[in-house]
Design a protein around this nucleic acid. Structure first.
Length: 966
RNA sequence: UGGCGGAUAGCUCAGAUGGCCAGAGCAUGCGACCGAUAAUCGCAAGGCAGGAGUUCAACUCUCCUUCCGCCAACCA
């Protein structure tokens, strides 16, 4: 029925009323809104997905397909998500969704890292001083609450930005099952001989009797007694310089902590700085040249004169005499020796300084600490033994003086580390820690040289690193890293659940007992370590294999959290097995995390995997860059330059965040800013409008009834479908390469240049003007329907919300998936809907030429427009002069040209020479009158008496319409 | 300071193996249209961080400088 046409006939002359004519053209119409209203509509879609259990639906649909496992690295649960976490999660979501739509079964189990110091510190602050009086179990409960709060928040935020995953059952490092796997992983290392206990210097608060992390130390002013102490050289001074032969030589150290002198094991010199041998009062003193005059003044060395100059490295491996103990002191070299204060010679006590400790390791010095947890010096000489460190200072100074080694002493105020909680000065103290040795031979390996370190280095080469420099970066780290210190003196973590013999202190490593504890953890969680008495877990009659002792106590240290997160894939596999679900393969396909994780998770996961299974946990590792602000500075909350992804979602839509992630080359550092988000938002509108045009022109299109087979389609439509095929190939390839930014740019170009500016612009005439059911129009509809179907699927992993919305508006055909997310990517050939080859070199080259001529026409039209000769292109007729082969080509498409160029008439003229596309374009006002229906100019307007204001083309259409309604 | 990476139009990106005026899109400016209309179309103006070297030839290779980022110090 065309009610308007009826009135048209009755009235006869009403053909002159354009609004009547207007009703005979097929203008687009769709309920798909132009304005997305994302902040309001995304939550609605999320609710629907939630209700449909979309993640589970996808699992069912892909059941049995080849698996693809992207294993999630757990973010830390100490705050809301930021742009970097959003980037990370969106990238993972792109990978998982694109693999899913490529046909894989790609489950995604998000995880969270819940234990560790930052949370313990935050809870500590909330609890104030109370924490020290609380039982560990209660502190842990507070920490758990805190971690759970942010786990819940982050989970909700990740969902908000459209991430799909097993959110109702994520993995979390604080669940009983996970904790048991951590312990199991440790025991695997332990039982295979990787684990040992050794010394390590840590910050220590003697007031609170606890180890402190770096973050718990604050620097405050402190007045110390400083001393200049003489260390006599024992070796032949001629080794340093012939000028010193036979002389009495010593060096002078300066320290602000006299109490560390009993632990003095070495004197450190800077290898490259110049040192001088000063002679004064018959003795020789070695100090740094740059500090010589100052030292001479302080230490009262009258008439000091230099005998020799030499670099510090000359003093390496020389022996000196400890000022008051019977101990040889080794000359060592260290880069951290500075020339601003002191003597340029640093007394080195490996048990009481971080740098000293490192130097001690390098030179094999004894790091045993004779300072106990209360800060009292044990053993040693009666002058100071039994005194607390600060009280020991003066007796030690007196002792040094009495031995004639004290050259000077004075008080000085300087910045010194203090405990953030009790504000007492802290000390460095070597303590017993648990280590995993990098030099342990691999079980079942090729021998002593085949160690955890060497084998890991070999396996790194087998992983696909993306970007490729990741391999070198991690290799360098594994090559040089020290043994892994896996113990921490904290509360919030998985306890190192090992029994220690009460009499000899050695650990009991009993497989059966280990297993019991792991099972206990799986059942009751790691909290059980703080409740159950050890006796309940140890079989009666168990004896210490070292001393035969029968009483045991529990180790109180917890694991380094990196050991925990490093066990994540092991935990996931164990859980799958336990649940009787289809197991995940070993190794996983992909880890995707920021570059900071080379030091962190990439490494700890690798070592955990090597220690338990002997191979890496991943086949590939992808590393996004860091998120920066528009000035190129790292984004951080403290700097105040951060862009909040959740905030952007609530104002512009999560789709904008996702599109932003897709738009940047994530392998480099990426820039995020409010302005950029706005621009992406504009871009989103363009893509949305492209879809809207497609949907608007499909309102009367039923693929089952109206589809035109490829071979009968218009040449332009065939060409555009072929373009779409290459587009599909490109995009699919780039999903495989994780080159999302290439997809983004390609999609943009396709939508803006190929579709909107070219194809759709040309198509308007055909779609609007032709008879609704004409082959010409159905051909165009078939093409845009196919293009829409391809585009919506290819974009779904990125624009997950909008594509789902569009999916509902596209024509529903039999057997079509209910959600775009359960659909498959198109194959290139499918786009043609036939067995025609997607590529056609002839067509491709024809249209490249045609489009280039079109550009030249457009340019000529613009010039005419600027001369005020025409307004719209339809007011013009153009004459194109071209030489062969272009001329012949144009001739072949002659009847198409005026539509292609959107002008009223095209005249072709053959030019001379060789025409490869260059054409001369002449623009003149079109002849005839403007057709009121199609706005083209024609000399035939008025020839049809029934429709006097339309052109010959439109009058034919109107007659068709008339017949179809009568 | 050391390990690793980066720097192409205002912005986001293209530019295998060095060679033929360095390409897009967005933004900007000017214009058209008013039948995708809080749309759409056209045209235009913009650039290889700086320096040295290798070469017939360098955005592309080497070196240096500057700036930025990650890690070494439990943020992806």
């Amino acid at each position: 029925m065309l009610p308007i046409m009826k009135g048209f006939n009755h009235l006869g002359e009403s053909a002159s009323v354009p609004s009547e004519l207007k009703s005979t053209i097929n203008l687009p119409t769709t309920a798909f809104p132009m304005r997305a209203n994302l902040p309001q509509n995304e939550p609605k879609l999320l609710a629907r997905w939630e209700q449909e259990r979309i993640y589970n639906r996808i699992r069912e649909v892909r059941k049995g397909a080849q698996q693809y496992i992207l294993h999630d690295g757990p973010p830390y649960t100490s705050g809301p998500i930021h742009m970097g976490t959003a980037l990370n999660k969106c990238l993972k979501d792109f990978v998982v969704k694109s693999k899913t739509m490529a046909g894989f079964d790609a489950p995604y189990v998000p995880g969270w890292d819940c234990h560790g110091l930052p949370i313990e510190i935050k809870v500590d602050k909330e609890l104030g001083g109370k924490k020290l009086q609380m039982r560990p179990l209660d502190v842990r409960a507070e920490c758990r609450k805190y971690a759970q709060k942010y786990l819940d928040l982050q989970r909700q935020q990740f969902k908000r930005i459209g991430v799909f995953g097993r959110f109702e059952r994520p993995y979390a490092t604080m669940t009983p099952h996970y904790e048991s796997v951590v312990l199991e992983t440790f025991f695997s290392f332990y039982e295979n001989g990787f684990v040992y206990k050794g010394l390590r210097a840590v910050y220590w608060c003697m007031h609170d009797e606890t180890a402190l992390a770096e973050a718990e130390v604050e620097y405050e002013n402190h007045t110390s007694s400083t001393v200049w102490v003489k260390y006599a050289l024992l070796d032949d001074p001629a080794k340093i310089d012939p000028a010193l032969a036979g002389k009495k030589v010593s060096t002078i150290i300066w320290t602000t902590t006299p109490w560390t002198l009993p632990a003095s094991m070495a004197v450190a010199f800077h290898p490259d700085e110049e040192y001088v041998a000063l002679e004064s009062g018959g003795e020789i003193y070695i100090v740094a040249s740059r500090l010589a005059s100052e030292v001479a003044a302080k230490c009262n060395l009258p008439n000091a004169r230099p005998l020799a100059h030499f670099p510090g490295r000359k003093l390496e491996h020389l022996n000196f005499q400890h000022p008051f103990l019977d101990r040889k002191i080794l000359g060592v070299l260290a880069d951290y020796v500075t020339m601003d204060t002191g003597t340029g010679v640093v007394h080195t006590a490996p048990s009481h300084g971080a740098e000293d400790f490192m130097t001690g390791v390098k030179y094999g010095l004894d790091a045993t600490s004779n300072v106990d947890e209360k800060g009292i010096l044990r053993q040693g000489l009666p002058e100071y033994a039994g005194k607390r460190v600060w009280d020991a200072n003066q007796p030690i100074i007196d002792l040094v003086r009495s031995r004639g080694a004290l050259l000077h002493t004075e008080k000085t105020e300087h910045s010194y580390p203090h405990c953030w909680r009790c504000h007492n000065p802290v000390i460095f103290r070597a303590t017993e820690q648990w280590f995993i040795s990098m030099e342990t031979p691999m079980p079942g390996g090729k021998g002593k040289e085949d160690t955890l370190r060497t084998r890991t280095l070999e396996e790194i080469q087998k992983v696909k690193w993306d970007p490729s420099w990741g391999e070198e970066r991690l290799s360098n780290m594994i090559q040089t890293r020290p043994d892994w210190c896996i113990s921490r003196q904290r509360v919030w973590g998985v306890p190192i659940a090992v029994f220690l013999c009460e009499s000899c202190g050695k650990p009991l490593n009993d497989k059966a007992i280990n297993k019991t504890v792991v099972e206990l953890f799986a059942k009751s969680g790691a909290d059980a370590w703080f409740t159950d008495e050890p006796a309940k877990l140890i079989p009666v009659g168990t004896k210490c294999p070292h001393c035969g002792g029968t009483k045991f106590e529990k180790e109180t240290d917890i694991f380094d959290v990196w050991l925990e997160s490093g066990a994540s894939y092991l935990a996931l596999i164990a859980e799958q097995k336990m649940d009787g679900e289809p197991g995940y393969p070993w190794p996983s396909d992909l880890y995707l995390e920021g570059g900071d994780q080379y030091r962190g998770w990439f490494q700890s996961s690798l070592l955990c995997a090597m220690g338990t299974r002997g191979t890496p946990p991943y086949k590939g590792v992808v590393t996004p860059g860091w998120t920066l602000d528009e000035k190129g500075q790292a984004m951080s909350k403290s700097r105040g330059n951060d862009v909040d992804p959740v905030d952007v979602s609530s104002r512009l839509g999560a789709e904008v965040v996702r599109l932003w992630v897709a738009s940047v080359d994530f392998r480099e550092d990426v820039v995020g800013s409010e302005a950029l988000m706005q621009r992406i938002g504009e871009n989103y509108k363009k893509i949305r409008n492209t879809f809207r045009y497609i949907l608007g022109n499909l309102y009367d299109f039923d693929p089952q009834k109206n589809m035109i087979p490829f071979e009968r389609m218009e040449a332009l439509d065939q060409y555009m479908l072929r373009q779409t095929c290459t587009f599909v190939d490109d995009v699919r390839k780039w999903y495989d390469e994780f080159a999302f930014h290439k997809i983004y740019h390609r999609v943009n170009h396709f939508c803006i240049v190929d579709l909107s500016a070219f194809y759709f612009d040309v198509l308007k005439d055909r779609l609007y003007i032709s008879a609704p059911n004409s082959t010409a129009r159905r051909s165009a509809q078939t093409a845009i329907w196919r293009i829409g179907e391809a585009l919506v699927r290819l974009l779904a992993p990125i624009m997950s919300f909008t594509c789902e919305e569009i999916w509902q508006y596209l024509p529903q055909v039999e057997g079509r998936a209910a959600s775009v997310h359960t659909a498959l990517f198109p194959q290139a050939a499918e786009v043609l809907g036939s067995s025609f080859a997607p590529q056609d070199a002839q067509s491709e080259s024809d249209w490249t030429t045609l489009r280039s001529v079109r550009d030249q026409v457009l340019k000529a039209l613009e010039e005419a427009r600027n001369r005020k000769e025409i307004g719209t292109g339809l007011e013009a007729q153009v004459t194109i002069t071209a030489a062969d082969p272009a001329y012949s080509l144009l001739q072949r498409y002659d009847d198409q040209l005026r539509y292609l160029f959107i002008v009223s008439h095209v005249h072709l003229k053959q030019g001379s020479g060789n025409g490869t596309g260059g054409a001369h374009v002449e623009v003149r006002p079109a002849e005839g009158q403007k057709c009121e229906r199609c706005w083209n100019y024609s000399t035939h307007v008025g020839e049809d008496r029934q429709y006097p204001t339309v052109c010959e083309r439109c009058s034919a259409v109107l007659h068709v319409l008339e017949n179809s309604t009568s």
